[in-house]
Simulated scan of single mutants.
Amino acid sequence: MCKAKFEVVSDNDTFVLIVDLDQGKTITNDAHAVIEKLSSMTKHGLGNRKVYYRDTCGRFDELEHSDSRFTRILPCKESQQQFLRELTPPHL
């Protein structure tokens, strides 16, 4: 059961971007359940799409997964940080 609260900001053919709402567990601390929930929320699962998230400190990282199972957290490069920041609505 996923205890992290998050909002999906972007969901396209190549990646999913979510934002941690800082309620309950963080995405970082509930990564396994977050990947499982995202996989079940989409019609055909996550497939090969990357999953990026903004943590409670405002930093973007990737939740790496394989067959919709969380494997590890990867830090995003500065260019990715800027790109993902631009996709995130100001109210989040």
Rank of each mutant, 00 (worst) to 15 (best):
residue 34 V to W: 02
residue 16 V to W: 00
residue 28 T to S: 14
residue 65 H to W: 08
residue 84 L to S: 05
residue 25 K to N: 11
residue 84 L to A: 03
residue 2 C to V: 15
residue 28 T to N: 12
residue 50 K to N: 13
residue 24 G to C: 04
residue 53 Y to A: 05
residue 64 E to Q: 03
residue 2 C to E: 12
residue 22 D to Y: 07
residue 49 R to Q: 04
residue 14 T to N: 13
residue 58 G to F: 04
residue 69 R to H: 15
residue 49 R to F: 08
residue 15 F to V: 02
residue 21 L to A: 07
residue 41 M to Q: 11
residue 74 L to P: 00
residue 15 F to H: 10
residue 32 H to T: 15
residue 51 V to Q: 06
residue 15 F to R: 06
residue 62 E to A: 10
residue 17 L to Q: 06
residue 5 K to D: 13
residue 8 V to C: 04
residue 69 R to A: 07
residue 67 D to V: 08
residue 59 R to C: 04
residue 34 V to T: 14
residue 78 E to K: 10
residue 84 L to H: 10
residue 9 V to K: 12
residue 31 A to K: 13
residue 49 R to T: 14
residue 72 R to L: 07
residue 63 L to K: 08
residue 58 G to N: 01
residue 50 K to A: 12
residue 90 P to M: 04
residue 51 V to D: 04
residue 43 K to M: 12
residue 75 P to K: 08
residue 70 F to K: 04
residue 46 L to K: 03
residue 52 Y to C: 02
residue 5 K to S: 13
residue 79 S to H: 12
residue 52 Y to D: 05
residue 91 H to C: 11
residue 79 S to M: 01
residue 84 L to F: 10
residue 57 C to N: 01
residue 75 P to I: 09
residue 43 K to D: 10
residue 65 H to P: 09
residue 36 E to V: 02
residue 86 E to M: 09
residue 82 Q to I: 02
residue 61 D to E: 12
residue 45 G to M: 11
residue 62 E to F: 06
residue 25 K to W: 09
residue 84 L to M: 03
residue 34 V to E: 05
residue 86 E to H: 12
residue 42 T to P: 00
residue 41 M to H: 09
residue 83 F to M: 14
residue 65 H to F: 09
residue 91 H to E: 12
residue 64 E to G: 01
residue 22 D to P: 02
residue 18 I to G: 03
residue 61 D to A: 11
residue 3 K to D: 15
residue 61 D to S: 15
residue 37 K to S: 11
residue 41 M to V: 00
residue 87 L to E: 01
residue 50 K to P: 00
residue 82 Q to M: 14
residue 70 F to M: 05
residue 48 N to H: 11
residue 30 D to S: 06
residue 85 R to W: 15
residue 13 D to I: 04
residue 45 G to A: 09
residue 66 S to W: 09
residue 61 D to G: 02
residue 16 V to R: 04
residue 69 R to E: 09
residue 60 F to P: 00
residue 66 S to R: 03
